[in-house]
């Protein structure tokens, strides 16, 4: 991750100087995490929301100040705002309704956590994430899927680092319990 961040920081710098290939490189480094985060947030609409977010990132690149890790935080903040806008638009159709069925169909009991993990589909994971309280789900997604460190995730969420750390901890614990088929 650290090496990645250094490479990302250099790419962003060159992109800000106008180098197109450098922007494409930054995109390739950052996009998978952003898309994973957006999948957790808005499900199947993630690609569209990510596309909107990248338009904004490309437009505002000149405003950004910071290194590679900062660029992850900045882009995650933009993606999050786009996702929240999207959720407001589709509020009439809450996202967890899409996945409740998957949650119910989870395998009841597994011998080991690892065995259960291997068989998990994206839909089931989304269902589990959707079942978490919002702040836990977001903290887990930003820390685990986007790969932000604690303080950066806290800034993205506008919360104290301690609160985000414990939310991520509790969210992961709950996910692990559910994956194990335990009683939460």
């Amino acid at each position: 991750m650290k090496a990645h961040d250094v490479a990302l920081g250099r790419a962003v710098e060159r992109a800000q100087a106008g180098e197109e290939a450098a922007f494409a490189e930054a995109y390739r480094i950052v996009h998978p995490g952003l898309l994973g985060y957006l999948r957790g947030m808005v499900g199947q609409d993630a690609e569209d929301v990510a596309s909107d977010a990248w338009l904004e990132i490309a437009r505002d690149l000149g405003r950004f100040r910071g290194d590679g890790a900062g660029f992850r935080g900045w882009t995650a903040t933009i993606a999050r705002h786009r996702a929240l806008d999207h959720l407001r638009r589709v509020r009439s159709r809450p996202r967890h309704d899409l996945f409740d069925q998957d949650v119910l169909e989870l395998p009841a009991q597994r011998d080991t956590a690892g065995e259960a993990m291997e068989t998990l589909s994206t839909g089931r994971v989304l269902g589990l994430v959707a079942g978490l309280p919002r702040e836990q789900a977001e903290a887990v997604l930003l820390r685990v899927v986007v790969g932000l460190d604690g303080p950066t995730a806290a800034r993205v969420l506008g919360k104290r680092p301690g609160a985000v750390r414990s939310a991520a901890h509790r969210g992961l614990k709950r996910l692990a319990n559910q994956l194990r088929g335990g009683d939460r």
Binding site: G36, G40, L120, T122, V125, L141, V145
Partner: peptide
């Protein structure tokens, strides 16, 4: 598992 499932 989260990373594997959510990241493309």
């Amino acid at each position: 598992a989260l990373r594997a499932a959510l990241r493309p």
